[in-house]
């Protein structure tokens, strides 16, 4: 835990079969900050995100080489992948609550990881829902189906579900692209609050969102990291012309 970085990526390459999807990536992801990954569709940003908790293991023909370290530990070495996914939670583009009660959605992870005591589960569910800024809206209907919630509430529930596993890092893959502006601003506020306790990495197609909430921004193009740096610098004076052209809407 001495390094200020949650992740350190060195010389990483990722192939899907013969397709070279990520090329020689070198990147540090600082702890307790929000890092935004931006770039046109197909540039590799989501693939990169998914390789941080080894979700790509599930993709047939996916091959990764190079070095990805979390707190100094090689996550593609001899580690327990389930434990890795507990430490690195994920929130997807489309809210995906399980077809069960609100309570059970949040308790699902802790139960899987062996928490049985009701008192302990109650406390964890309440804390997770509070941290996800949705407790007040659902505390009176915890036993009701999660599918009855609005899209924005469902997404915050999914964040609560991720938090219940007590992760260190939360990966967010376009978490607001299916949400209205109010729900979007709830999630953005939430991300800003959560970064004190968690490292957050967010893939977004919304430039203003990246500019609003992230501390650092990484621009991907055709599988390469073109530029990464402080968000303010990237959005006011990008160093690379390709970054400039992308964020100002000249291509992509």
């Amino acid at each position: 835990m001495n390094s200020p970085n949650a992740f350190e990526v060195r010389g990483m390459n990722l192939h899907y079969g013969s397709f070279h999807a990520l090329k020689n990536i070198h990147l540090d992801i600082p702890r307790n900050q929000i890092t935004a990954l931006i770039g046109p569709s197909g540039c590799g940003k989501s693939t990169f995100l998914r390789s941080l908790n080894r979700m790509n293991d599930l993709v047939e023909g996916c091959r990764i080489d190079g070095d990805i370290r979390m707190d100094g530990e090689d996550i593609y070495g001899k580690i327990d992948v389930n434990h890795l996914r507990k430490r690195v939670g994920m929130v997807f583009q489309k809210p995906n609550p399980f077809p069960m009660s609100i309570y059970d959605n949040v308790a699902y992870g802790p139960r899987t990881h062996g928490v049985k005591s009701k008192a302990q589960l109650d406390a964890l569910v309440e804390k997770s829902l509070k941290d996800a800024a949705i407790w007040d809206e659902v505390k009176d209907r915890l036993k009701k189906s999660a599918l009855g919630l609005s899209g924005g509430q469902q997404q915050r529930l999914c964040i609560a579900r991720a938090l219940a596993a007590q992760p260190e890092t939360i990966l967010m893959d376009e978490p607001t692209s299916a949400l209205d502006p109010i729900s979007t601003s709830h999630i953005e506020e939430l991300a800003l609050t959560l970064k004190d306790q968690y490292t957050i990495i967010i893939v977004t197609h919304n430039m203003q969102q990246a500019a609003r909430i992230s501390d650092r921004t990484v621009f991907f193009l055709l599988g390469e990291v073109i530029e990464s740096g402080e968000t303010e610098q990237i959005f006011s004076s990008p160093a690379d012309k390709r970054t400039e052209d992308y964020i100002t809407g000249r291509f992509g």
């Binding site: 500019a211 959005f235 006011s236 004076s237 400039e244 964020i247 100002t248």
Partner: peptide
Amino acid sequence: QQPVARDLR
């Protein structure tokens, strides 16, 4: 336009 980069400057 919510300008960024050179446009914002």
